[in-house]
Simulated scan of single mutants.
Amino acid sequence: MQKMRRAFFVEARDISNRMELLAIAEQSGLPIDVIRTSVDSGKAHASICSNMYKSVELGVKSSPTLIFNEGRQKLSGNVGYRIIEANIRELLENPAGQQSWC
């Protein structure tokens, strides 16, 4: 993704063009045949649609959004790393059957 962003924003390459995308992917050492097969079969598009459906289902309204605890907990926007760490630590260290502070 970083190379795609660089190609678009810095090098002014047309990343909407499939051949350009494949060239960037190839330069990045990605498996071009796998990418072509995934796009041509519709599998790549289906995956994107699935992700979009899931985001609607989970109520994701901004980016980034971190979802924990089977969707019961959301951190959205510009959240500090200490807040993220505290939430993850609480989920990992919380004994079974006990209420979470998150």
Rank of each mutant, 00 (worst) to 15 (best):
G77Y: 07
R72V: 08
R82L: 15
R72H: 14
S47W: 03
H45E: 14
Y53E: 11
M19V: 13
S47F: 05
P64R: 09
S47E: 12
L22T: 01
G59T: 01
A25Y: 01
Q73I: 14
V34S: 11
E20M: 06
N78I: 11
I24A: 09
A23P: 08
I88V: 12
G77Q: 03
G71D: 01
L91Y: 07
S50V: 02
W101P: 11
S50C: 05
V56P: 02
I88E: 04
Y53N: 10
H45N: 10
G80A: 04
R72Q: 14
L75T: 02
W101E: 14
I67V: 13
A44N: 10
G77K: 04
P31G: 01
E26K: 08
W101I: 13
V79R: 02
Y81M: 15
N69K: 11
S76F: 11
G29M: 04
Q99N: 13
R82D: 15
G77N: 05
L66R: 04
S76K: 01
A23V: 03
E85M: 05
L91P: 03
E57A: 03
K74V: 07
I83E: 15
Y53P: 00
S47V: 10
S38K: 06
T65E: 04
L91A: 10
E70L: 04
V34R: 13
L92S: 09
D40P: 00
Y53S: 12
W101Q: 15
M52C: 06
E85F: 11
L22P: 02
K54G: 00
S50I: 00
R72T: 14
N51H: 09
W101L: 14
D33F: 01
Q27R: 13
S55D: 10
N87L: 05
R36F: 06
L66Q: 06
A96E: 14
R36S: 08
P64E: 11
Y81Q: 12
R36E: 11
V39A: 09
R18N: 05
Y81N: 09
E26W: 01
H45R: 15
V39R: 03
Q99D: 11
Q98H: 12
N78Q: 11
L22F: 08
L91H: 11
Y53A: 14
R36I: 12
S55Q: 05
P31W: 02
I24V: 12
I88T: 06
R18V: 07
E70D: 13
G29C: 01
R18W: 07
P31V: 06
E85C: 12
Q98K: 13
N94T: 12
I88N: 06
E57N: 07
S62Q: 14
K61T: 15
K54T: 02
E90F: 10
L91G: 10
A86Y: 14
H45M: 14
K43D: 00
T65Q: 08
